[in-house]
Simulated scan of single mutants.
Amino acid sequence: MIGVDASPEMLAQARKRLPDVAFHEADLHRLPLPDNAVDTVVCALALTHVPDLAAVLAEFARVLRPGGSLVISDAHLLVSYLRPTLARRRGTDGRPSLLAEHHRPLSAYLAAALPLGFQVRQCEEPRRPRHSLDPDTAPDPLPAYVSWDLLHWCPEASAAALDDSPIAVVWHFQLDGIRKAEQPDQIN
């Protein structure tokens, strides 16, 4: 198992939990692996912060062996409509800042993956569980910031908008057994 992250802080946390795993500080656009090096790539909740999806998927295809699997989880496009983008802490100064987020329709993943020789094996859209409408017992549907405070005043509207909505998309792609570069030229 090999772990890759661009954040030294996240790598430090990962090393604490998994001391026997090799971790590398690197960008998703330049993985520190040779071509055809791994059987499976798992990318969890990171692609929403990448502006060029196709370039990262091309890097995943480069390091995967033919027939290898790519499993991606990412925030669902609907999440961008249902919750505000929240400030997160970054850097040593502790100042809040927004991470860039790129909310994509499901078709964007297909448009980036299929030309690289990936085939869809499965796509799931996990949903938020239904909550009670009783404001005293219902869990907070979202952090209460700015106008989102209104969600507590009208739990029926909150439940209608948020309950049972997709919160993520999980893709399982498989790389063709024959890479495009290895395929014979076709005459059209």
Results as ranks from 00 to 15, higher is better:
53 L>K: 01
78 L>W: 10
33 L>G: 03
80 S>P: 00
44 A>F: 11
58 A>T: 08
68 G>F: 01
27 D>H: 07
85 T>I: 13
76 H>S: 01
29 H>S: 14
28 L>S: 10
34 P>G: 12
42 V>R: 06
93 D>L: 08
82 L>A: 05
93 D>N: 09
68 G>V: 04
95 R>E: 15
79 V>W: 08
78 L>M: 11
98 L>H: 08
38 V>K: 00
78 L>D: 15
97 S>H: 09
48 T>Q: 15
26 A>C: 05
91 G>Y: 04
90 R>I: 12
52 D>H: 07
71 V>A: 11
93 D>T: 06
36 N>P: 04
26 A>R: 02
64 L>W: 00
78 L>G: 09
42 V>I: 15
83 R>K: 11
86 L>M: 12
29 H>Y: 14
76 H>N: 04
58 A>G: 05
71 V>Y: 05
74 D>M: 05
92 T>D: 13
52 D>G: 02
80 S>D: 10
87 A>W: 09
64 L>T: 02
44 A>G: 15
40 T>D: 12
86 L>W: 07
85 T>G: 10
82 L>I: 08
87 A>S: 12
37 A>Q: 04
67 G>L: 07
36 N>Q: 14
29 H>M: 14
88 R>C: 09
39 D>K: 04
27 D>Y: 01
33 L>S: 01
79 V>I: 13
48 T>L: 11
89 R>S: 15
28 L>W: 02
75 A>K: 11
53 L>D: 03
96 P>W: 03
60 F>C: 12
47 L>I: 07
54 A>I: 05
93 D>W: 02
83 R>H: 10
